[in-house]
Amino acid sequence: MLPKRVFQFFIIYFLFIGGLMIMKYSLHLSDYVIPAPSDMLHTMVAEYRQYSLATINTMTVAIIGQVLSVIMAFVIGIIGRQSTWLGSFIKVAAYNIQAYPIVALAPILFILLGDGFITRLLIAAMICYFPVLLSVLGIMSKPIDDIEHFYRVTGRMRWQLEVKIRTFENLTQLTTVIAGSATLAMAGTIVGEFIAANAGIGYSIRIALYQSDLGKILIALFLIGITIAVYQALLELLGVAIKRTWTGK
């Protein structure tokens, strides 16, 4: 799974770079508009260490943010699955919060909480929790009648058991959503860093933009892409491992 993901990323990235090069050489564009491959290689060698550390920094924030958002989505999803007034209120509140664009909220968060770790974490969590929440709400609100009926008629159904049954029956879907939300967590963290943080790859991209250096931005995109590909593959492997443990297969 891991080599496949990385290989797929390489195909996408190099197709993109190939497209840029075709454009560069067919339109006779300078290295300022699109850097030459040798320039990119030179930038890669010069910036590799600094940009790798910045990407790891961003990824760390994104992973913690994603874990938080998954917990948050499960808590809200489990409470919101009920067709009670509280359940409906939580759903509406969750949808409303998501309606505010993060680019508008981020500067306020940075003013209130400063430009450190907590703000980046909060932005990452806010961006990636909603798709997870939607899936959790959908999964948790849909009864698995074949199994649940037995526990209901025998009076042994508890909410913990209900959640467990529905999670187990939809594990593949949940794993896919959680792996997908990793991309959003990373994107959210980068947006936050780009707007106001002092660290991370988003901050490095902002500096590169000030310096009109597309080569640095392309290297940053490479590192972001490969890191996400590896992380997503690991999440999928984790999902498979959990399923194996639960089913014993």
Binding site: S30, D31, Y32
Partner: peptide
């Protein structure tokens, strides 16, 4: 600074 950066990278 944009002009100088661009010229060193071959921009016309």
């Amino acid at each position: 600074d944009q002009v100088l950066r661009a010229r060193t990278k071959g921009s016309p």
